[in-house]
């Protein structure tokens, strides 16, 4: 399936949940927010939400800023 992650088109070979996606990206999940099609997905449900073809996913965390 094809989806957009942080603005970039990506092709995923297998089905996975958001938790799976985070792991796949090598992220530890701390202080990260996931927005799926502009809706924030609560952290508790990451393990139950499958990514779907055409989804636009934003994975956001913190950086230095004034």
């Amino acid at each position: 399936m094809t989806l957009k992650i942080n603005g970039k088109e990506e092709i995923l070979e297998k089905e996975m949940t958001l938790t799976g996606l985070i792991k796949d990206k090598g992220l530890n999940g701390r202080n990260i927010v996931i927005e799926c099609n502009l809706e924030i997905v609560p952290r508790q449900t990451w393990g139950k939400v499958d990514v779907k073809d055409g989804d636009s996913i934003e994975i956001i965390s913190f950086t230095g800023g004034g």
């Binding site: 202080n31 990260i32 994975i59 956001i60 965390s61 913190f62 950086t63 230095g64 800023g65």
Partner: peptide, 18 residues
């Protein structure tokens, strides 16, 4: 202390400001 949000870049080893 102020911080900003940004998209995670999995390819960069940027540390977490927090």
């Amino acid at each position: 202390v102020t911080v900003a949000v940004r998209r995670v870049d999995p390819d960069s080893s940027d540390e977490n400001i927090l």
